[in-house]
Design a protein around this nucleic acid. Sequence first.
DNA 1: ATTGATCATGAAACATTTTGACGAATTTCG
DNA 2: CGAAATTCGTCAAAATGTTTCATGATCAAT
Lengths: 285, 285
Amino acid sequence: MNSREGQGDGVEDSPRGRVEMIPAKRRALILERLRREGAAGIQELADAIGASLSTVRRDLEHLVKQGALERTHGGALLQSTERATFEPDVALAAQLRRDEKHAIAAAVADGLRPGQSVIFDASTTVLAVARAVVARRLPLTAVTNSLTTAQVLAEAPAVQLIVPGGTVRPGSTTLVGRPGEEFLRGIHADIALLGTHAITGRTLTETALDVAAMKQAMIAAARHVIVLADSSKFTTASFCTICDVADVQEIVTDDGAAPSVLAELRGLNVALRVISVPRQGRGRG
Amino acid sequence: MNSREGQGDGVEDSPRGRVEMIPAKRRALILERLRREGAAGIQELADAIGASLSTVRRDLEHLVKQGALERTHGGALLQSTERATFEPDVALAAQLRRDEKHAIAAAVADGLRPGQSVIFDASTTVLAVARAVVARRLPLTAVTNSLTTAQVLAEAPAVQLIVPGGTVRPGSTTLVGRPGEEFLRGIHADIALLGTHAITGRTLTETALDVAAMKQAMIAAARHVIVLADSSKFTTASFCTICDVADVQEIVTDDGAAPSVLAELRGLNVALRVISVPRQGRGRG
DNA sequence: ATTGATCATGAAACATTTTGACGAATTTCG
DNA sequence: CGAAATTCGTCAAAATGTTTCATGATCAAT
């Protein structure tokens, strides 16, 4: 009764091929997909990853035990509070689109001029810009509400760094609310670099109200707003609206975005930069 | 694969033999690949480097012990880069008087009660208290002007963390000035934990004006001020004055302080706690 | 210069974990 | 209620981890 029989007999391309991917990366892929879509079915995940249903179930079980997501009949939901702690799998999920983010960040950093005042949003893509700024030794006046970005920028002697302050969102290193939002009202920066959770049609959305409010304050505080969104962000809308695409001046994304999406954005009054990413076999599938 | 093969090519460093790559370079390659991909499998690494699986495993083991990455089944993950961005200076300073600071911090953390509001100053000793708070899972409302302390406290789900904000002092991760100082005026915390650069006679001093001003704001914002000072701090005064010893309610130090200093402090209206440090023949001076 | 100790490397033997498949029990929905 | 889908438990194969050992290089001492 071994499975060998079915294999030798079936000449059709039964996908019995093993996917060479370490479990942690597989779980990270699941998390990333959930963060984009909000929910996903077992079969859909198995198909996307290239693993069997059993494996996907066990991965979900693992992630549930970590508190990162919630199981439903037939699929899984992202844990709404996103209090996903700093577990390895979650940390890896943040790194998944690394090539795209890095390429976008480098392009944006090249566009910054010495002496400008720049607002850095709490976002992994914007964090990559901060790293590029430090590497380039760009002298800037920087404002950020992310503890992580702040620590990166604090290492640059040429950067004058201001943290508006606020309350830390549980499970993250993002500052929201008072006193940061009010402080931003008194700020007039040259540029704001914003990440977003999703861009749908002409609407930028975010998962939480307080984060959206902070981003709105940043938009109001800058003369030129640049939205950094890798191509995975063009998906279904998140919980609450940040603003309309017309409220920002520039959108930077990578060349993985669907042409229809890009065409729709081009019709609006927004500068659209599409960065080509050299793909080097990042993930199979 | 035989190691002999590599002997023919001229490697001037090693006369002959199998040195295809120095271990340090191999590990650097592993780290670089991990930074690119976020994760990597053992076989994949062995293939990329040209070493055997055993060697790659041993390298990973070595890197784990060094804290650079995390092992998973089948591969390795980069240690969460968000936490990996710590200041080398801070790491160094935390090593000095480590036992003393740890003992003081543990004693202070034991004195904190669930639900209290606590102000954490920017200081390595106070940072140690923050670590103890996280380890004890103490539910607190925390306020800090140190980016490092904030990141530590942000990992504790039970801690509500508020960052007053301000400008980062160059070369450090300390926030000073606006808007933090003004925000602190509206705060009334139960406890403030303060470090200091020096205690001379009955005067607390600090090296820079803006840092001293921030500490003064913290003192004004708390009902009970605790100064954490290991015994090396009882020395010559620094540049500018923070306050008088009478302005704080409690001083915690270790038993390495000179008896004359302790006697002088005991004469003032301040609770003085001397923590005995178990010295293990390290004789740190 | 030779010898012996020490260490890194690679390979093999063995224990453990993971994975995919299958059937039975359970749940969902018309 | 009944059909379809889903989940659960189990099992064998494959992959991975762990331990151990032999080989060769480097180094200190004779």
